[in-house]
């Protein structure tokens, strides 16, 4: 089984990168691979539990919760989190962590593959 690290640098609702990462990540987990995800820049908006959008049955945050619930390790850049007024990630789904680039560097060090979106 492989260890796949994803980097996500864009937020939800605006571009489709969050969707590609979520669907690829879930497909990888179902196949038994280990998945890590570092959310950088606007990527840190994806793990918020407070998203609301009536047009969609599931909001992006639901997919990131699903990733964590299925064993993915998700770390969000702390500088990016606070720069965006997210108060140390207090609105993130449980299990989505706040950390730093050294955490991402460790993900990359342990990964067989790295995918950036």
């Amino acid at each position: 089984m492989a260890n796949i690290n994803f980097l996500l640098t864009e937020g939800p609702f605006q571009t489709e990168k969050w969707s590609t990462v979520a669907k690829l990540g879930l497909a990888a987990l179902k196949k038994g691979h280990a998945v890590t995800l570092f959310c950088y820049l606007d990527g840190v908006y994806n793990g918020l539990s407070t998203q609301e959008f009536a047009d969609w049955e599931k909001v992006p945050g639901d997919y990131f919760k699903e990733l964590v619930d299925n064993g993915a390790e998700i770390v969000c850049c702390g500088i990016c989190v606070n720069a965006r007024g997210q108060q140390s990630g207090k609105f993130f789904y449980e299990g989505i962590k706040v950390g730093g680039i050294p955490d991402w560097a460790a993900f990359v060090g342990g990964a067989d593959r790295v995918v950036t979106l």
Binding site: G100, P102, A105, A106, V108
Partner: peptide, 11 residues
């Protein structure tokens, strides 16, 4: 900034 972090981690 990411380059700095990649170079300064444990690895």
């Amino acid at each position: 900034r990411a380059v700095v972090g990649m170079m300064s981690g444990l690895d």
